[in-house]
Amino acid sequence: MDLMKQLLLFVQPLGFAWLLLTVWLGWRFWKKERRGLLLPFAAWAVLSLFSCTPLTAWLLLGLEDKYPSIKVADAPTADAIICLGGSAAPSLTEPTRVNFNSNVDRVTSSLGLLTQGKAPVMIVTGGAYKEKGQWYSEADVVVAYLKETLKLTLPIESLGRCADTHDEAVKIAALAKERSWNNVLLVTSAAHMPRAVAVFTKAGVKVQPIPCDYISSFKMMGDDSWVHLPQLGSIQGITSWLHEMIGWAVYKWRGWI
């Protein structure tokens, strides 16, 4: 069964393209026709490095290990739980009117903290989406799902539409001042946590990091492979790492961290 799963990787565009390029380069080298192979070989090497080796996982691990993992039961108490956005998007076609993605751990972890009594209120943040001239809020639809669909009666509030992590930090800082919050539990993906903590700290919010949504293969059970066939997850992982690196540089340039 494992062999079948491995072979199915070659049906996917990424695996199929890598296989064709590997076979073609191997044929050219075997025939000793090596002229003009520098760029194709460089493309193959980059693709192989980031989709077939642990390099992506190592890079992500450098971000995810900045703050220690913590169990819900062991988390400290605070004045509020801040669930950062990025885990869902408004939808006009889904039955629940919300489409959750792989970052949904941000929501489930925040709910775990709230039900354990780690803070008296949970604030959901998120981006803004425009459809046919009308604006929709990620935070609004997530809160609506929790309260109207799941019928939760917990103290959960929406921060409304936010542009980015900096905008979320500024709005939470204003809310913290208004409600006299001394510290908050900040819940977001482990890879995003270093930048999030830096932004919130610069905005004047004292936070306790609660990282979740670990995506490095080194943090997943049963994934101990070294070199493997091309995997889309590795490409998605390097995309996340680059997003954080570029985001850090941009935020630093703007004076937000």
Results as ranks from 00 to 15, higher is better:
M1V: 13
D2V: 13
K5D: 03
Q6K: 04
L8P: 03
Q12V: 09
G15E: 01
L20Q: 12
L21I: 10
V23N: 08
V23D: 08
W24G: 04
R28C: 08
F29T: 14
W30Y: 10
W30T: 11
E33N: 12
R35T: 10
P40F: 07
F41H: 04
A42Q: 07
A45E: 06
A45F: 06
V46F: 06
V46I: 08
L47T: 07
C52V: 00
P54L: 00
L59I: 08
L59E: 00
L60N: 07
L63W: 15
L63N: 15
E64P: 06
K66H: 14
P68I: 07
I70C: 05
V72L: 10
A75K: 05
T77Y: 07
I82R: 01
C83E: 08
L84V: 12
L84M: 15
L84H: 05
G86Y: 00
A88N: 01
A88L: 01
S91F: 01
T96A: 03
N99A: 02
F100R: 00
R106H: 07
R106W: 05
V107G: 00
V107Y: 02
V107T: 01
V107F: 02
L111T: 13
L111E: 08
G112D: 02
Q116G: 02
G117R: 03
G117N: 10
A119K: 00
P120N: 11
G126I: 10
G126L: 09
A128V: 11
K132Q: 04
Q134G: 10
W135R: 09
E138V: 09
A139F: 05
V143K: 02
V143T: 04
A144I: 04
Y145M: 02
K147D: 05
K151H: 03
K151N: 00
L152S: 04
L154I: 14
P155K: 11
P155H: 14
S158N: 13
S158V: 13
R161C: 15
C162N: 13
H166S: 11
D167E: 15
E168W: 15
A169I: 12
A169V: 12
K171D: 14
A173V: 08
A173S: 12
A174S: 12
A174F: 12
L175M: 14
A176G: 01
W181C: 01
N182W: 03
L185G: 04
L186R: 05
V187K: 04
T188P: 01
S189A: 08
S189F: 05
H192M: 13
R195Q: 13
A196N: 15
V197Y: 06
A198T: 09
V199K: 13
T201V: 10
K202Y: 03
K202M: 02
K202I: 00
K202L: 01
A203D: 04
V205N: 04
V205H: 05
Q208V: 13
P209E: 10
I210S: 05
D213L: 03
Y214F: 15
Y214G: 08
I215P: 03
S217D: 09
K219V: 09
K219G: 10
M221A: 14
M221L: 15
W226M: 06
W226Y: 09
V227Y: 06
V227S: 06
P230M: 01
L232C: 15
L232Y: 14
L242M: 10
W248G: 13
A249M: 11
V250T: 13
V250N: 12
W253L: 06
G255E: 02
